[in-house]
Design a protein around this nucleic acid. Sequence first.
DNA 1: GGCCCTCTTTAGGGCCTT
Length: 332
Amino acid sequence: MMIAPMNVSIFQGSRCRINTLAHLWSGNLHSWTRRYSTTSKLHDSKIPGIDGGNTKKWTRRPITTKTEGSIETPQRSKPSSIRHEVLDETVSASSTLNIGKTEITQFQKLQYCDVQRESYEKLASLLTIIVFDIETTGFSRESERIIEIALQVLRGGKNSTFQTLVNPNKSVENERIHGIKTNMVNRPDVPRMKDLIPILLQYVSSHQIPGGKVLLVAHNARTFDVPFLISEFSRSSIEIPSDWLFVDTLPLARELVKMEGSTLLKAKLEHLIDHYEIIREGDAHRAMSDVKGLALIFQRLTFDLKLSVLDILEKSFSASDLINQKKKKSSG
DNA sequence: GGCCCTCTTTAGGGCCTT
């Protein structure tokens, strides 16, 4: 963990800057720590899975989810009972919040940072970061539909990943992109979006820290994933919770492309995966494969760009931000 | 469709998502 003073912030005047978000999660850390042990903090992490430690345990099981009375949002829905897949990934989070004694001592010497550190730690401790991705039948959020969605909670722990196919109630014409065929999703046992939304809300809520916010991360989130979610939620007459914030990794990748000395030429997800030498788990353009890749990319990007949690929050936006932005443009 | 860049801003084209 690197700590250095910083002078500018829209949140508060001066503050401490913590140049990595890695301490907020553990689920993926081991995957790139092996390749990118460039910091002593990461090098010293005792993470299950490294060097013959515990390995990730994956089990696939059908579940029945009941949402009645369990969603803390105003948009309560009828109880639903849908079979879908949850991939259990058991990953210890114990290493991520540990700070070495030396680091604490050095930190404590920065007297002027104490108040800011307290605020930072409070903010960080209340934040749940979730990487997500959707596959769709095309680019238009008006005429096309979501056919797959995947999420990964970066903090790790039980049920840290979620994925499901979605019944679009229309044919899939772009199978060549993701390999998802019409007969894979147009089935009665595949949930439609209106059935899935209450489950999604419950899943996110179950990982949300009381009083905290959720930070949902996606590549090209601002102009693709989030507008698609807004449209799908709207069709189901459900609002996206106001405590969901979104971060788009595309502008972050573009910052890295522009950075002096950077070898990243394009901001596409595939270029980022190549750039960081990430080994894919599964096929490209399948939601969970892209989520797992992006989870690693997000960690590397925030490290390379020296972004703290506050920096990321400054770049975040809400669903209502996009809706209001669109209304302004329409009226203007 | 929004963002970004430039041979620009009274515009146009490329990128990025499926």
